[in-house]
Design a protein around this nucleic acid. Sequence first.
DNA 1: TACGCCACGATTGCATCCAATTCCAGTATC
DNA 2: GATACTGGAATTGGATGCAATCGTGGCGTA
Lengths: 227, 227
Amino acid sequence: MSAEPQVAPVPRDGAASRRIAEGIRDEILHGVYPPGSRLRQEEIAERFGASRVPVREALKALEAEGLVTLVANAGAWVSRLTLAECEEVYQARERLEPLLLRYSAPNLTPQDLEQLEALARRMAETDDVAEFLRLDREFHMLSYSRADTLMLGDLVLRFWNTTQPYRRAYSLLMDAHSTRIVHDEHHLLVTALHEGDTESAEQTIVSHIRRTRRMLAKHPEIFSTES
Amino acid sequence: MSAEPQVAPVPRDGAASRRIAEGIRDEILHGVYPPGSRLRQEEIAERFGASRVPVREALKALEAEGLVTLVANAGAWVSRLTLAECEEVYQARERLEPLLLRYSAPNLTPQDLEQLEALARRMAETDDVAEFLRLDREFHMLSYSRADTLMLGDLVLRFWNTTQPYRRAYSLLMDAHSTRIVHDEHHLLVTALHEGDTESAEQTIVSHIRRTRRMLAKHPEIFSTES
DNA sequence: TACGCCACGATTGCATCCAATTCCAGTATC
DNA sequence: GATACTGGAATTGGATGCAATCGTGGCGTA
């Protein structure tokens, strides 16, 4: 144990705990840890070049975000949603995202609208699932990005995060028809925003989320994986 | 340092961390720690007969709940809401609580309805603020208690928790007229539930929350206390 | 007198160490 | 052959100790 060339001296930047929480969150969102997989403190600690203490703090925070499930004296697992829970999240999104859009829409710049249009186009053109998911997320988050809110945005982001694995599974099952409808809705949303018709934009996002929820309900097999 | 009669041997029941989180949350909700007050790790640790490690985990969890604000290398404070943030929470409540009520209403038992009525009556009779707050909270939570949800209920509870200190401050300012309206709304809600008219119950709760939000907006002085 | 600087105490962040609990494989018993 | 039990390894929960950082009061200088 004389030399440690593998890990930088850890400049004690400010908070290893934050770094670890963000790292684990990213890994969960990118599917490195699928829902239901075990999270061992020591393995994570070693991978981030830290001790187990900040790892435990990070896990506590992720638990409160709903991404991780902690069981006393047993361990931590990536949260797995049942169909019912997922529908709940979508119901909540149906209520909150139009509100968030109402905050954001009036502040969107012409550049934002242009970029939204570009994202919608690129989404329609790609057929790579990972790329589609990334663009879809970027599209919707951009539409909310000008909301001058202090917690609503974070809350919606959390909803997106907890349901991310299931969006991935679902988008693998989409046929050409469903795909087409999704893109139509995206274009409708951009158009409404362009015309300054916030009412219509809100209605479009409600329909968009509700339709996805009902499609998910038709594929309960997504939620029963045992791995 | 030979004997320690003051604290029980700590039966290591399962999770000191949970106990501490619940303890601090209760103290914040009961006004022991007002918004903006500092939370020192060592003081809390000593008071709960534990070390600072579980305290830090508890604070992390409370931060994710929005009750506590953590600053790296500086400390923890009880979150203080601005008027804008508080309005945001109320806007979110306006959207989510009717949804939660929709889940709960069909499952409310006759006993529940009776108890709701009793709570509404007792609320109208008391003139002690602390008592009113307790009953009000119990009333609304009971109306949601039969919701078979897995996260919506917790989320709404969190909204109530983060805004609790401001409800307290506000209810001190209520005149007879406002008070009367609040009680009327409560009775309307119970009546709608009794008649099985969920639509109407939802509309009542929306109005109830919206009215409170607008009243709060008329008293910005509540949010500018410097203590 | 007001402003900037510095040293010290107080407090936080993290690593290491120990105790308690859980999980699991191997064994014995029905 | 299936089930209940037991002992030890693996893993988590918490306490203690140390380094880094921040706030603050006192001092010097303009």
